[in-house]
Amino acid sequence: MSEFIMPSLGADMESAVLMEWKIKEGDKVKKGDIIAEVETSKGVIEIEIFEDGIVEKLLVEPETECKVGTPLAIIHSVSERINISPAAKKRAKELGVDLEKLASQTKGTINLSQVEATDEKTETKAPTTDGMRQAIARAMSKSNTEIPHYYLSTSINMTAALKWLEELNSQRPIGERILPAALLIHAIVLALKKVPQLNGFWQNDTQEIISEINPGIAIALRKGGLITPAILNTQEMNLNETMHSLDDLITRTRTGKLKGGEMTQQTITITNLGDLGIESVFGVIYPPQVAIVGIGNIMDVPWAENDMLCARKVVKVTLAGDHRATDGRIGAQFLDKLDKILQKPEELL
């Protein structure tokens, strides 16, 4: 591993502007290759590399002024031979650990403990690997950089809905009871049918409204990590089916038995942090989706109604929308519909 630094291209040179990289990360380079163009007071000069290796990381963005000696890139020297101990080799084969990948992250000798540590990462934390964290990181960074979010929030009185649900559940055997989470998801799906602009994608500068409503449900894996598999085609489901599908999805998510489509066909995301006692959730949209609905904890709060102050069960529902695809008005319509739907729970069945 070595740093490629801004070379001195003349005794009087103090700094130069890196104009353009001629290489990208992962490229193999040979001694003498031109890897960048820099602009000095004497004009644009091509600079070359002095060793063989692989470009590990570019440290400086183009058009940045850098002092002589500033590290510009990290080069993984190919002459640094990686030794793999026999035991490590054998164990890697048994565990299916990718030694080439490990070698690219290691200096010196790869031994047994490194192989086993790699395996622990891939095995016990299965879907919650660093890989998952990185995938989330990438998607969320992209989202926050590219998507102009707007946020709307409303408090919805759940008293009637929960009372109705309690009544319903009291007549059902325990295995057929409906959870408030399922009720809320179903209500959101019904609201999306009325305000379909929030269900879909923003791609290539155009909005795409999708007729299937496949809400990605944020499901926490207890040992860390979070994934948002979809319940597919909820637009065709009644409340019972939604509950059943949600149950099935959570079970399969936690046992690692998701289907491909469930991980790729989400059209909107619903995140419910209510179980953790969170009051309201301001989500980050998962691109190319255009909205994320956050559900907080259903709480007993003082509530003014008919000029009276009373205690009511209330949930805060938040919408984050992609301002390129929709305006706050659409979002407001959606939340309003949702509220109305939840006030007439008997129509939810």
Binding site: S85, P86, A87, A88, K89, K90, N111, L112, S113
Partner: peptide, 9 residues
């Protein structure tokens, strides 16, 4: 001869 692949050093 007998345990090469067990060696880690």
């Amino acid at each position: 001869e007998q345990a090469f692949y067990e060696l880690d050093a």
